[in-house]
Amino acid sequence: AIERGSKVKILRKESYWYGDVGTVASIDKSGIIYPVIVRFNKVNYNGFSGSAGGLNTNNFAEHELEVV
């Protein structure tokens, strides 16, 4: 089962992080479509409006993740 702290591989082909491994930061139990927040070591794009980097978290559905 996917739980907080799990290392997961991203299976969503259109994702910037496809094939990468991230760490589960949290799981939303409220029934939303993409409840699993995954944190990565790298950012997906340069930040804007003065922020240092881009996003390094993204929401995924459990079926888009594979525990490694």
Rank of each mutant, 00 (worst) to 15 (best):
N56V: 10
A52D: 14
N59F: 08
A1C: 14
A1W: 10
V43A: 09
K42A: 07
K7W: 12
L65E: 00
A52E: 14
V68I: 12
V68W: 08
P35K: 13
N44W: 15
S51F: 09
Y18C: 05
I10L: 02
V24N: 00
F40K: 01
A61Y: 06
T23H: 05
D20W: 09
S6F: 14
L11P: 03
N44H: 13
S51W: 07
D28P: 02
N58S: 15
Y45A: 15
E3P: 05
S49R: 04
I32F: 07
G53W: 05
V68T: 06
Y18P: 00
H63I: 09
R12F: 04
G5V: 01
E64W: 03
S26P: 00
S49F: 11
I2K: 00
V21D: 01
I27F: 07
K13G: 04
L55Q: 13
A25Y: 10
L65F: 03
S51Y: 07
R4K: 13
Y16P: 09
Y16A: 06
I27K: 03
V36L: 04
V8D: 02
A1Y: 09
V21N: 03
R12A: 05
A25D: 14
A1G: 13
I37L: 14
A61M: 07
I33W: 06
Y34C: 11
V21P: 00
G50L: 07
S26Y: 11
R39P: 00
Y45L: 15
S15Y: 04
W17V: 01
L11V: 04
H63T: 07
G50F: 07
K7P: 05
E62H: 10
F48S: 15
E14R: 05
I37W: 15
G53L: 10
V67N: 05
N58I: 08
D28Y: 05
S15N: 04
D28I: 07
N44R: 07
Y16K: 05
L11E: 02
F40L: 03
N58D: 15
S26D: 14
S6Y: 11
G50Y: 06
I37H: 09
I2R: 00
V38Q: 00
A25W: 11
S30Q: 06
Y34M: 07
N44S: 12
A1H: 12
I10W: 02
K9Q: 05
E14Q: 11
G54M: 08
F40T: 01
E62T: 10
N44C: 15
Y16T: 05
G5I: 03
V68S: 02
Y34P: 06
A25H: 10
S30I: 06
G31S: 12
L55H: 11
L11A: 02
E62I: 14
R4T: 13
G31M: 10
N44G: 08
N46I: 09
E14W: 07
N44E: 13
G50T: 10
V67Q: 05
L65D: 01
E14I: 05
E66D: 04
Y34L: 07
N56D: 11
S26F: 13
I2M: 07
K13F: 09
Y18R: 00
H63F: 10
S6A: 12
R4H: 09
N46W: 07
A25R: 07
E14P: 04
G5C: 12
L65G: 00
I32C: 13
L65V: 05
L55F: 11
G19Y: 04
D20L: 12
T23V: 13
K42W: 07
G54D: 07
A52I: 12
D28A: 07
G54T: 09
H63D: 10
A25L: 15
F40S: 00
A1I: 13
G5S: 02
I10Y: 02
W17M: 02
I37R: 11
F60V: 00
P35Q: 11
I27V: 08
T23Q: 05
K42T: 11
N59L: 04
H63G: 04
S6T: 13
F48K: 05
V24Q: 01
G53Q: 12
K42R: 09
E62P: 11
Y45D: 15
G50W: 06
V21L: 07
G19E: 05
S26A: 13
S49E: 15
N46F: 07
E64G: 01
K7G: 02
A1M: 13
K7S: 09
A25P: 01
V68Q: 08
Y45V: 15
K7A: 07
S26Q: 08
V43L: 09
A25E: 15
S30F: 06
G53S: 10
F60S: 02
I32R: 09
G47I: 05
G19P: 01
G54W: 10
N41R: 09
I32T: 14
K9I: 09
K7Y: 13
N41D: 14
I33V: 11
V67I: 11
K9Y: 05
L55G: 09
I27R: 02
G19R: 04
G19D: 06
S15C: 09
R39M: 14
S51C: 15
